[in-house]
Design a protein around this nucleic acid. Sequence first.
DNA 1: TTGTACGCGTTATCAA
DNA 2: TTGATAACGCGTACAA
Lengths: 316, 316
Amino acid sequence: MKRVTLRDVARMADTSMMTVSRVINDSPGVSKDTRERIMQIIVELGYKPNKDARSLRSGKTGRLGVLVFDIRNPFYAEMIGEIEDLANDRGLTVIVTDTNRSHQKEEKALNLLEETGVDSVVVAPEGYEFKHLERASNSGLTVVSFGVHFPRGDIYEVWIDDHEGGRKAGEHLRKQGVTKVALVMDNPRKATTVGRTEGFLEGFCSAGESQVFNLQLDWRVAYETVKKMQTLPEAFFCHNDMMAIGVLRALRERRVKVGDEVLVIGFDDVFFAEATNLSTLRIPVRDMVGATFEILSGKKSGKIRYVPELILRGSA
Amino acid sequence: MKRVTLRDVARMADTSMMTVSRVINDSPGVSKDTRERIMQIIVELGYKPNKDARSLRSGKTGRLGVLVFDIRNPFYAEMIGEIEDLANDRGLTVIVTDTNRSHQKEEKALNLLEETGVDSVVVAPEGYEFKHLERASNSGLTVVSFGVHFPRGDIYEVWIDDHEGGRKAGEHLRKQGVTKVALVMDNPRKATTVGRTEGFLEGFCSAGESQVFNLQLDWRVAYETVKKMQTLPEAFFCHNDMMAIGVLRALRERRVKVGDEVLVIGFDDVFFAEATNLSTLRIPVRDMVGATFEILSGKKSGKIRYVPELILRGSA
DNA sequence: TTGTACGCGTTATCAA
DNA sequence: TTGATAACGCGTACAA
C-alpha cells in the first residue's frame, strides 16, 4: 500500500509535478484540458496531498491548538465543540490538550504544541500566570486567551467579565431578600475567582453576612463541604455549574428545598444547568468562539469582552 | 524570530548535522564529549526538532486521531481525557474530531484524518455502518472501534456488551416488581440500540408491559417525550445518562418521586449520574482506554469485550 | 501554458 | 566516532 505522490500522478498524466501541483491548488495557468485530465487521474489513483510536506515547505501547519483547563467540565467540551465546527469550515485541524487543572501541565502542553507545530493556540487558562502565554505569543504563535482576562498581559483575549457576572448574582440575591450567603469558590489566586467574588460582594452590597469558601474546583469537594456545614446560609453562589451540582446534591440529601428554603446560583450555563433547573450566569460560548476566530483570521485584535447573562430558573 | 534548525546547531557546534541528529535521538556512536557539547548548544539556542520534517522523513506521524460521536456528552469527554493522559505519556499528539452524531460527518472526518496524517485512529462510531472503518483500516491505518461491536466487521474493537448491560437492567427492574416499563432509546438501526433493547427485554422476561421509544439522542427530546406522556410507567430504562437526565427533569416537573413512584436507570455512568443519584450501567472507560492503547502498541489485537456494571443509586 | 531546479528540516546509508 | 549525500513530498522562482 505505498502512498500515491505528486510524482506518481505526474508520471501517470505524462506531465510535470508542477502542473499537477497547480491543479490541486487551483492555481491559474493550466489549460482546461490538462486540468481535467489530471483531475481524473487524481481520483483514479486516490491521490491525497501530504500535509507534512506542505507544512514543511510553506511554514504554515494548518493546525490549531486548543488548551482546555478541564475537558471533563461540559463547559470546555462545549467550547471545543464550537471551535471544531468553525475550524472544520476553514480546513483546520484541531489539536486538543486537557491541562487537567494544572498550571504546570498548561505550560508543558503549550511547549509541546509549539514543538508539534501549530499556527495558533486558543487557551482556556488556569488564570493565574500568563508569562508563558506571552512568551509563546512572542515566539511567533497567535495566542488567544479564552475566558480569562489578564489586564496586564499582552495577549489577545476573548474574555468574560467575571466581576460583572458576580455583581449580577449578588444583586439578584440581595433583591430576593437574602441576608446570609455562602460563596463556593475556586482558588483565590486566580483572576477568575477574585473577579467573581468581589463582583458578588459589590452586588450583594454587604447587605448581610457572607462566607467565602475557597475550594478545589471539583463538584465532589463542594458536595462534601456543604454536606458538613453546621448551619446553612439562605443562598449559595458557586464558582461554576460543576460546583453547583455538588452543592445541589448536598442540599438534596439534607432534604432542603432548593429555590425555596435555599437559593443556588451557578456560573457557565452548561447543559445540565437547564436540565437540573439551576439558575446561573450564562457565558456565550458560541459568540466567544466566533470572536476567537475573527482574531485568528486577523479581522479583530486586542481584548474582546463579554458579559454573562443571569439566567433565572427554579434554584434562585 | 527565525526557527533554529539542525543546521544551525551543527554550524555552531562545528560538526555535522548527522552528529547532532544522533544526539537528539539518543543514538549510539557519539563520544561523550561531543554529545555534551552539542547538548549545551541545543539548550543555548533553544533548538526544537521539527516534527513535520521528521514525519516526512520517517513516515510515522506521532499523531493519534480520535473521533467521537458527541463531544458534549460527558461520556466522550471522559474518554478523550483518558486517551490524552496515555497519549501524553507516549509522546503522541491527539487530534480530536467531534462527528456530531452524524454518520456522514464521521466518514468525512475519517477521510480528513487520513489526509492530515495519523498513525492510528480511535473512533467511537455512530454504530450502524462500518465499511468506512474497514476501508481506512485496509489503507494502512490502525483503527480501533471504541464502545461499539461490529460482529461482522474486520477491525479492532474495545467494545462494551450492550446486550448484557440491558439484561442486567431488565433483570433488576423485574426483581423490583416492576411490570410496566418504558425504554427511552436511540435510533433502532444502531447496533447499540438493538443490543440494549433486546438485552433489556430478555432480562425483564416480558414480565410485564413494555413500551419502546426510539428517539433522537438528545436529553431535551427525552424530556419532552416524557413530559407529554399520558400515563407514566413504573420505570424508565434510558439509552444513556444524557437521556436519563431529560427523563428525570420531566419527572421532577410532574412532581413524581423518582426512586419511589418511578424508577430510572441510565447507561454510561458519567459524573452527573453520581451527582444526581442516578442508577446506571457503568462503562469502564479508563480500563477500555488502557486496552485501546495495548492494541495501538501491538500488545493485543482482535476484539476486546467489556461488561457494564449495574450501579444502584437512589433512582432505582 | 508548462517545466526545471532547488530547498523546507530531518534521517538512513554508506563511506571515511 | 564522524561526515557527505540522498531522499521524504511538496511549492516557489524562474526559465522555456
